[in-house]
């Protein structure tokens, strides 16, 4: 019996804060309030349990444990008060899956038109998984994939199917 390509695990305790702002203006304040450096385009930065993802030229996503969410949200809101920004708790908007295993990249390669070999270790890629939008970044031992909660069941099915034993992409 062949082994599954990767282990798929839903992450349920992930807190997410969406930050929309002019990053050149508000960047310094965000860095200070969230205690994490600003990522460059299509990359992420980490500080301990926190991760800051670059989503678009005017959008960041702060990923952190649920326990730290309320404090971080308050701190960011205070730090950015008076500026034209949005700081929003979007933890319930998205579902997150960990794709862990030696061939986790093959699972994603089946679902997304991304050149994973060219994706750096600190890369953040927004793309699609089959028919739905998703985003993913590398984490020790594989990837974390986020997608909308409304399609979480679909994503789960996709990932489980793509990781099925005996469906590896390596030449036989």
């Amino acid at each position: 019996m062949a082994e599954a390509l990767a282990h798929i695990r839903e992450i349920t305790d992930l807190g997410m804060i969406q930050i929309r702002a002019d990053l050149t203006e508000a960047g310094a304040a965000i860095t200070k309030a969230a205690a994490i450096p600003l990522p460059g385009p299509t990359s992420t930065t980490t500080n301990g349990s926190r991760r800051l993802c670059w989503m678009s030229p005017d959008e960041l996503l702060l990923v952190l444990p649920q326990a730290e969410l309320a404090a971080a949200l308050a701190e960011l809101t205070t730090a950015l008060a008076g500026q034209h920004v949005l700081v929003l708790d979007v933890s319930d908007m998205r579902a997150a899956f960990a794709i862990e295993g030696g061939r986790a990249d093959q699972v994603l390669a089946k679902l997304s038109p991304t050149d994973l070999a060219a994706m750096p270790a600190d890369g953040m890629r927004r793309s699609r998984a089959a028919q739905v939008a998703c985003g993913f970044w590398r984490q020790e031992g594989g990837f974390v994939l986020i997608g909308f909660r409304s399609v979480a069941d679909y994503l789960r099915g996709l990932l489980d199917n793509a990781a099925r034993a005996g469906t590896g992409l390596d030449p036989r």
Binding site: P41, T42, S56, P57, P113, D115, R125, S127, R128
Partner: peptide, 11 residues
């Protein structure tokens, strides 16, 4: 040109 990603047509 906004994010530098080489996007394929379906994206």
């Amino acid at each position: 040109p906004c994010c530098g990603i080489r996007a394929e047509e379906t994206e």
